[in-house]
């Protein structure tokens, strides 16, 4: 029963993210939009670039989807609604999403086209910028919960959500998470105006469906991680637990997707400079602050 609920909510949430994505990018709310796009791509020709590295070309999108799905395995929707409650859940989430990079490099390298290749390697530069800012805020969250298990992390926020307990960590993680899910303004690897689609540029048909699906699940996964780590997961005043998770996750996804649309696409050099010169010192300060807080005001 619970696995059925999990799968249903996964499908529902992914579809929701896709609707929101289309809404913010076209300014039009079409509930059937993702379905129509998927149908269109289903009927589209599956073009295989001639000099492609076939293996990478095929595996790239699939690996993206798998990595994103694996990272969702440790996200609890409600106390009993989790695929697997690992003792190292928070770390596992990060480990699974590290393979997004591998998938992007494969998908960019595979078709032997310049736009995709540049997009793939760009994502490596982006990872070097955001990676530390994902791990270090997670550390402080785990410090408060005294556990890496995601269930424990949510339970630790019963008194006060982490967004209030460690707002700095939340901001850093939101920033890093957006870079990790390459949503605007961090969409350097798939930029339309700069790279004509970048990594996506050579994909059509079913492969593109898988790629886009992987991307949607990735956005979903990042926003649910934000909810679990900082917004108290399923905690809510009334009603069923899972509905709170759902509302928060879709809300964070909408925030992530729409917030970035107001900003111009970031320069890669700026991204690196900000992450290392500003972000990492702040993250270290956050670790210190939260360390003191946990000792002094254990809420």
């Amino acid at each position: 029963m619970s696995s059925f609920v999990l799968i249903a909510s996964l499908i529902f949430a992914t579809y929701g993210v896709a609707v929101i994505e289309e809404w913010v990018s076209t300014n039009r709310l079409r509930l059937a939009g993702p379905l129509i796009s998927t149908l269109r791509l289903l009927g589209q020709e599956n073009i295989l670039p001639r000099k492609s590295d076939r293996l990478f070309f095929e595996v790239g999108p699939v690996l993206l989807l798998i990595a994103a799905l694996l990272s969702l395995a440790v996200i609890p929707l409600a106390p009993g609604l989790i695929v697997t409650d690992l003792a190292t859940g928070a770390l596992f989430f990060n480990a699974a999403l590290a393979y997004v990079l591998v998938a992007m490099i494969m998908a960019g390298w595979g078709p032997d086209g310049a736009y995709g290749m540049i997009g793939g390697w760009r994502f490596l530069g982006q990872l070097i910028a955001y990676a530390m800012l994902v791990v270090m805020p997670i550390t402080t969250v785990a410090m408060r919960a005294e556990s890496l298990s995601t269930i424990d992390i949510v339970n630790s926020q019963e008194m006060l959500w982490n967004i209030a307990y460690q707002p700095l960590g939340f901001l850093l993680f939101l920033f890093a998470g957006m870079a990790m899910a390459f949503v605007p303004p961090f969409d350097l690897p798939v930029a339309s105006g700069e790279l004509a689609g970048g990594v996506e540029a050579e994909y059509t048909g079913v492969r593109l469906i898988i790629f886009r699906l992987g991307r949607m699940v990735l956005i979903l996964s990042v926003s649910s991680a934000i909810v679990v780590f900082y917004l108290g997961g399923w905690l809510g005043p009334f009603g069923p637990d899972w509905s709170w998770s759902m509302i928060k996750i879709l809300g964070v996804a909408a925030l992530m997707l729409s917030g970035g649309r107001m900003l111009p696409r970031i320069r890669e050099a700026t991204l690196l400079a900000w992450s290392w010169k500003l972000g990492i010192p702040l993250a270290l300060a956050n670790i210190f602050l939260v360390g003191v807080l946990v000792l002094v005001v254990p809420l």
Binding site: P184, P185, S192, G193, E194, R261, M262, L263, P264
Partner: peptide, 8 residues
């Protein structure tokens, strides 16, 4: 706007 991803 198109180049920088500023849809608005």
């Amino acid at each position: 706007g198109r180049q920088l991803g500023l849809k608005g």
